[in-house]
Design a protein around this nucleic acid. Structure first.
Lengths: 135, 135
DNA sequence: CTAAACCCTATAGTACACTACAGAGTCAAG
DNA sequence: CTTGACTCTGTAGTGTACTATAGGGTTTAG
């Protein structure tokens, strides 16, 4: 019968109290039982659920996607393949973002080497490149 | 004396009219002269400025940073080195984001290969990993 | 001359993931 | 018993970069 208050599960999950209430509003965690005075009363499984959320966030899933993942567990007939598909989609997503960032990095890198870091702005190849008509 | 209306410079820069007004509020472009009826009247240099903004955005600069870059050009004594420093900081910034995304990708990739994509969720290594205590 | 296409301001909404109050009530330690 | 730490609801604000809407006035092509 160990019931945990919101502050305790927040600390246990490494989150703020407001974040827990926010996750509740978002439907990521169930509305818990309440004490007579209206305090939220959690069981330890909520800590596990919050940790699941934290780890999934660390892997790049959005709260929406994490919600879907959590819902999946309560879906009869859902299988490993569903989770795998989501993970693969997320990898593709991440790869796309990396590719974009990499293109930016390369473009910037090219400009930086053209710039000797000397002289006035009027001679700056970086600003010039930004000023030029599209190639 | 060619004066351009907001719609024309928006089209020329590939942006929406609202975006131009937004950039004006953000201080990225100056408040232009107005016609008798209150219409904004731009000169062609505004198109160049907008294109500068668009290109800098493409390189990963935030509007704030682009504003700083534009301000730099009006700063006496500012030199090429200042621009170069900003470009290098942005590269470092991008590299950090890539590293983070790459770590996510690798972590997800490891989970995906452990998952044969078969069987019920109870056996899913991906969900299991998300459920497990921190390593 | 009229109707479409354009422009104006001001405000609010979008997405994402929180974070921060205000104003009140509750609980635990000393 | 008091004090400080905790909790509650509801609302609003943060940052980023827009996007949309309402309710007007203006310009231009036919």
């Amino acid at each position: 019968m160990s019931t945990l208050t919101i502050g305790k599960i927040a600390r246990a999950a490494g989150l703020g109290v407001e974040t827990i209430r926010f996750y509740e509003r978002q439907g990521l965690i169930a509305e818990p039982a309440r004490s007579d005075s209206g305090y939220r009363q959690y069981g330890p499984e909520t800590i596990r659920r919050l940790q699941f959320i934290v780890r999934a966030k660390g892997l790049g899933f959005t709260l929406q996607e994490i919600g879907d993942l959590l819902d999946l567990r309560a879906t009869p007939g859902a299988g490993c393949a569903d989770v795998q598909a989501r993970a693969e989609a997320k990898i593709a997503d991440i790869e796309e973002r990396i590719a974009q960032l990499d293109a930016m990095k390369r473009a910037l890198g090219e400009l930086v080497v053209q710039c000797r870091g000397e002289g006035p702005l009027s001679d700056c190849p970086i600003l010039d490149a930004l000023d030029e008509e599209a190639p």
